[in-house]
Design a binder for these strands. Sequence first.
DNA 1: AGGTAGTGTGGGAGCGCTCCCATGAGTGAT
DNA 2: ATCACTCATGGGAGCGCTCCCACACTACCT
Lengths: 351, 351
Amino acid sequence: MASHGARGRSGGRPTLEEVAARAGVGRGTVSRVINGSPRVSDATRAAVEAAVAELGYVPNTAARALAANRTDAIALVVPEPETRFFAEPYFSDMLRGVGAELSDTEMQLLLIFAGNDRERRRLAQYLAAHRVDGVLLVSVHADDPLPDLLAQLEIPAVISGPRSEHEALPSVDSDNYGGGRSAVEHLIARGCSHIATITGRLDVYGAQRRVDGYRDALRDAGRAVDETLILPGDFTEEGGRRAMTELLARRPRLDAVFAESDVMAAGARQVLREAGRRIPDDVALVGYDDSAIARHMDPPLTSVRQPIEEMGRAMTDLLLEEIADRRPASSRDPERRRLVLPTELVRRDSS
Amino acid sequence: MASHGARGRSGGRPTLEEVAARAGVGRGTVSRVINGSPRVSDATRAAVEAAVAELGYVPNTAARALAANRTDAIALVVPEPETRFFAEPYFSDMLRGVGAELSDTEMQLLLIFAGNDRERRRLAQYLAAHRVDGVLLVSVHADDPLPDLLAQLEIPAVISGPRSEHEALPSVDSDNYGGGRSAVEHLIARGCSHIATITGRLDVYGAQRRVDGYRDALRDAGRAVDETLILPGDFTEEGGRRAMTELLARRPRLDAVFAESDVMAAGARQVLREAGRRIPDDVALVGYDDSAIARHMDPPLTSVRQPIEEMGRAMTDLLLEEIADRRPASSRDPERRRLVLPTELVRRDSS
DNA sequence: AGGTAGTGTGGGAGCGCTCCCATGAGTGAT
DNA sequence: ATCACTCATGGGAGCGCTCCCACACTACCT
C-alpha cells in the first residue's frame, strides 16, 4: 500500500509513467522524447507528443535534477552591494546579454548578490549545495577568494575580466590594451604632444592593460614615454580630481588627458575647468566606458566603449559549453577559453 | 549491483545516510536534526551535528524537493521589461525589502521578468512546473491574466497593489486613499482655494483611490468638488504636460495642483514655468512617490512617500505564511490577507 | 542459411531525501 | 508488579525522473 498515495494520485500533475501509459509506450521512451534523443521512431515520437499535450505534462524539475545530477540553472554572481548593481549600467547591460543568450535554452538564471560577509557566506553554502550548474562571475577583484572556491567545488565558471594574465578560469574580457591604445592614438592624431593618463586601480588587471596600451601607442608613434605623465587613480571621481590637480602642477603645458574611466574624467574635468583650461581647445580629454556620464558631460566626452552586452552573451556561451562537456577544465583547449572582445572609440566634443 | 555506484561513491558529497552512519544513528534521526525537529534528545542532536560538521554535509536540495514536494524558492515576478526595472527605484526598493525579509530564511529568491509575450510564455511554463513555492507579484495591470493562472495552479501568491476592491489574492498596498487625502489637506491648510488634480491611469485601482482621497479631503473641509478640476493623466511626463496645459486653459486662476505621480508633476512644472507661473508662490505643486525626481526638481517637490521597502517585507511575510499553512486560500481569515501601509507627506519647497 | 551489426524499445535500479509506522525504552499511576 | 502513556528512534516506502542493460527485430554481409 502506498502510504503517500493520496498526495500524488489523481488531480496532481501527470508523471512520465502516466504519459507512457497513455501513449502506449514505456517510461524510457517518453523520457527520450522529452529530452530530444534521436533514437526514437517518428511514429512513436508523435504518439508521445500527443499524450504529453493531452495530459499537459510538464517534467518535474526536482526529480530530473536528482536523477541526472544537474539543476538546469546558472547563477550570475555580483560581488557588490545591490545599490551599485542598480546604479551602474554595466550590470544591466550584462544582464541583458546573458538573458538574451539564455532565452532559447532551458537554463534558468539566478541573480545572486554577494556584497557583504553575510551574503558571501550564504553564497558559499549555496555553491556547496551545488544548486547551480555553473557560475558567471562579474566585477571580481584580484584578491577575491570566490574563484578558488568555485574551482575547489569543481563548479564550471566564467569570469568577466580575468584577474591576471594567468587567470585559471575561462574568461571574457574587452580589449583593454587596444582600448587604451586607440584612445592615445586618437590624441596623437589630433596633434597633442603632451599626453597624460590617469589610471585605474592597478590591482585590476584590465587597468594595467590600458596603461600598456597607452605606452605602446606612444612608443609606436616614436615618442618617449614620460613616466611622470602616468598618474595612478582609483576609478573614483575624487581620485580623478586629485590626479588632475597633481598633473597640472607637474606639467602646466600638457594638452591631453586620457582618463581610464568616465567617472575619473568627470573629476578631471572639474579641475581643468577651475584652472581655466578649455576642453578641448586647451586640453583634450578622453574617458573610458562610454557611460551615461560621458554622453551628458559638458562637453560630451570622447570615450572608449566596451561591448558589455556582447560580453554577457559570450560569457554565457562559454559557460554553457563548459557545462556541456563536463570534464576537468584543465584538459581543454585553453585558447577557446579566453575571449577578448574589441572596444570602440566613441568620438565626441571633448577631443 | 549498483550500476550507478561509481557516481555517488566516495569523493562525491556526503549523504544523509553517511552522516547517520558516522553519528551512529538512523537516517530518520539525522533528517530530524537537519530540519530542526524538537523530537530529538540533546545528546543525539549533538552527535549528529558533530558528524555534519566533520563531513561537511550539505543537504541535496533536489532530493529534498522531490521528497517533500516543495522547492524552497519564491519568485518576484516583474511584468515589465527589464529597462523599467532598472530605471525605476520602485523595484530596487521592493527588492531590498524582500531580500531583507528572506535573509534569515532558507528561501531562495528568483527574479523573473515577464515583459513580453515570449517571457510570459516562459513564465507560464515555469509556474506549471511548480518550480517555486510562491510568487510575489508587483506592478500588475487590471487586465493581467497572471493572477488567475496562479490561482488555477494553486500557487500561493501575494500581489502588491490589488487590482480592485475585490482582489482575490492576498495583497499589500500603500494607503493611496490616505495619501491623496493628506496631499490635499496640506494644500487646503496652506490656504489654496482652487485645487486641481492630475490623476493616474484610472484602470489602476490605486490611482482611483488617490482621487477618492482628493474628493473626500475637499468635501470634509466643506468645499464643493469641482469635477472640471480633475484631469485624467497616465503617469507619464507627457501626460502631465497635456493635463496641465488643459487645466491652465480651463482655470487660469487655479493655485494648487496635486499630480498623482512625480513624473507627471515634472511635466506639469514645465508647463507652469512656460506659462510664467511661479512655484509655489502662484501655484503650489504636490507629487506622489517621493522619487529621486522629487528631490532633484527645482524647486524640490513636496510628495507623498510610499513605504516601498516595507511593502516588500510585508509581502514576503504574507507569502511565507501562505506557503506555511498551505490550505485553500479562501478558507482563511481575509482580513489578515490585505495589508494597507500608511503613506507620508514629505514637504519640500514646491508647496 | 548463419552470422553480425545496428536500431528502437521496455523496464530495473538508483538518485538522496521526507514521511510515517512500528518498536522499544522510560515514566508514573494503579 | 502491571498497565497505560509518552517520547526518541530506526528504517521501509516512495517521490518522479535518468541511465543503462537487455531484448526483440530488422537489414546486410558472407
